[in-house]
Computed example of a mutant assay.
Amino acid sequence: MFTCNLTDETELRLLEIRHAEALYLLTTSSSAHLREWLPWVDHINHVADSRAFIESGLKQFTHQDGFHAGIWHRGQLAGVIGLHGIHWGNRSTSIGYWIGDRFEGKGLVTMATKALVHHCFDELNLERVEIRVATGNPRSQAIPKRLGFTEEGILRHAEYLYDHYVDHIVYSKLADEHQ
């Protein structure tokens, strides 16, 4: 199973079925905060919905096609980070992340993303890692910028978010840019 210690108080752990209730509670308690940028929030209505998400990540992990890891801080689930899928022919992936509102501002997502980028290049031997962020979400944009990703451009109307489309900025990092 995938685990990674970030600090004495913070770690990444592959989400498992036993984490479904914690994931559900974090998602629902942060739904107003998350809903601004994530189109799936309104579809999380029961613990079973969180369980299904975890099962999909475990299936990805089994097939070496990505995974979902919990960001655990001081023993509590604080957020989620993962690989949306791995394109082995191109040796590329994209990273997605979110954090519960009460855990914002602690640098947890930046630490988690940095660790996952290292995993992608050092363990999985990938060539390219991508992060896509809504143009109106500066907090999320700050993460790839801090980690030395290159801004490649804007995908117009890349995602339908409840009642409107949002544009995405595409950031990438290549293996030879990784330290």
Score class of each variant (00 low, 15 high):
residue 66 G to V: 09
residue 20 A to Y: 03
residue 160 Y to A: 15
residue 87 H to Y: 05
residue 104 E to N: 06
residue 28 T to Q: 13
residue 142 A to D: 07
residue 43 H to L: 13
residue 155 L to F: 15
residue 160 Y to V: 06
residue 22 A to E: 14
residue 29 S to V: 05
residue 52 A to N: 07
residue 151 E to C: 14
residue 179 Q to W: 10
residue 90 N to D: 07
residue 100 G to M: 07
residue 67 F to I: 09
residue 133 V to S: 01
residue 68 H to R: 11
residue 120 C to I: 09
residue 112 A to S: 15
residue 135 T to F: 05
residue 108 L to F: 14
residue 127 E to P: 00
residue 78 A to K: 01
residue 128 R to W: 01
residue 104 E to Y: 00
residue 47 V to W: 04
residue 8 D to E: 15
residue 147 L to Q: 00
residue 158 A to L: 09
residue 86 I to S: 06
residue 90 N to K: 05
residue 13 R to E: 00
residue 62 T to W: 08
residue 120 C to V: 01
residue 91 R to Y: 08
residue 74 R to W: 09
residue 168 H to I: 00
residue 142 A to C: 03
residue 116 L to H: 10
residue 47 V to M: 12
residue 163 D to L: 07
residue 56 S to A: 15
residue 56 S to D: 12
residue 147 L to M: 04
residue 111 M to H: 10
residue 170 V to C: 06
residue 61 F to E: 07
residue 130 E to P: 00
residue 134 A to I: 04
residue 167 D to G: 07
residue 55 E to L: 14
residue 170 V to L: 05
residue 88 W to C: 07
residue 177 E to K: 01
residue 141 Q to P: 05
residue 97 Y to L: 02
residue 163 D to G: 14
residue 178 H to D: 11
residue 165 Y to W: 14
residue 8 D to A: 14
residue 131 I to W: 00
residue 123 E to R: 01
residue 179 Q to Y: 13
residue 10 T to E: 07
residue 39 P to K: 00
residue 101 D to M: 03
residue 167 D to K: 04
residue 8 D to N: 15
residue 71 I to E: 03
residue 53 F to M: 05
residue 120 C to N: 08
residue 25 L to F: 11
residue 19 H to G: 03
residue 110 T to W: 03
residue 172 S to R: 04
residue 178 H to E: 08
residue 120 C to L: 02
residue 149 F to M: 07
residue 88 W to T: 10
residue 148 G to D: 11
residue 159 E to Y: 13
residue 38 L to K: 06
residue 54 I to H: 04
residue 170 V to F: 00
residue 63 H to E: 15
residue 130 E to L: 01
residue 7 T to W: 02
residue 102 R to P: 00
residue 29 S to T: 14
residue 172 S to W: 04
residue 124 L to E: 01
residue 89 G to M: 02
